[in-house]
């Protein structure tokens, strides 16, 4: 079985094509292998978030294709794409975006409920995930009672709950203090190492860039540099 999880081929995306066209992604092609810990970097407006949205199936390119484990997600209908995201892609957002009326446990469990996973498996997996991100004692606490760092860790657990092919994280440390950011990166690095989970970040944060094992730089929608996969795991 191929180790390539994502194969994006010649992606193009232009916003406002009829008024003031903005070329957000310009002929980007890249491949991601299982177990990568990669950062998409670049100045504001360089196309990081757009590329992340395209890879996550939240947006469609004007041209090009995105093969995820061989399936071209640009060809999927809206409903199938939602299903595809649910089963294959984990999301971590800059502003955590947990469901405010659900507890940490319920937020993580919610994804598995959407996947129709049985109760016993759900409960066991929720406990494992929240313990892994160090929130075993905060299971029944709502997001409003958690710190930003803790909320982001719940978001990581939620992203992992569906056993996705890879996790897309849009500036995950942007709202965190350095201690929380470092803590979160440790957890993600640990999950990457122990579970071979693929993480792709869009970030400005130097701390994330330093921990990444592959750094892809975008400028004006084009990949200007790509360090490629560094085989060694970070310490």
């Amino acid at each position: 079985m191929s180790n390539i999880v994502i194969d994006a081929i010649n992606l193009n995306k232009t916003y406002n094509p009829d008024t003031i066209p903005v070329k957000a992604i310009d002929g980007v092609s890249l491949q991601m292998q299982r177990g990568e810990f990669a950062a998409l970097v670049g100045p504001s407006g360089s196309g990081k978030t757009t590329l992340l949205n395209l890879l996550g199936g939240l947006d469609k390119p004007d041209s090009g294709s995105i093969l995820i484990n061989g399936t071209d997600i640009t060809k999927l209908s809206e409903n199938r794409l939602v299903d595809y995201r649910l089963h294959n892609i984990g999301f971590i957002f800059q502003a955590y975006n947990l469901v405010p009326v659900l507890t940490a446990r319920e937020n993580v469990e919610f994804i598995m409920l959407l996947q129709n996973i049985g109760k016993a498996e759900r409960e066991q997996r929720v406990a494992n995930l929240l313990n892994q991100v160090g929130l075993g004692d905060k299971m029944n606490v709502r997001p409003s009672q958690l710190s930003g760092g803790q909320q982001q860790r719940v978001a990581v657990a939620r992203a992992l709950a569906s056993k996705p092919q890879f996790i897309l994280a849009d500036e995950p440390t942007a709202n965190l203090d350095s201690h929380s950011a470092s803590n979160l990166l440790d957890i993600m690095a640990m999950l990457n190492k122990e579970e071979n989970m693929t993480f792709i970040f869009s970030t400005h944060d130097q701390r994330v860039i330093e921990r990444a094992r592959r750094v892809i730089t975008l400028v004006d929608g084009k990949v200007t540099s790509d360090t490629g996969l560094v085989k060694t795991q970070p310490a």
Binding site: L58, V82, D83, L86, H87, V99, I111, L114
Partner: peptide, 13 residues
């Protein structure tokens, strides 16, 4: 925003 986010993480319309 929240409805969009729920759709993003896999909730159907």
């Amino acid at each position: 925003f929240e409805l969009g986010m729920l759709m993003a993480i896999g909730m159907k319309k």
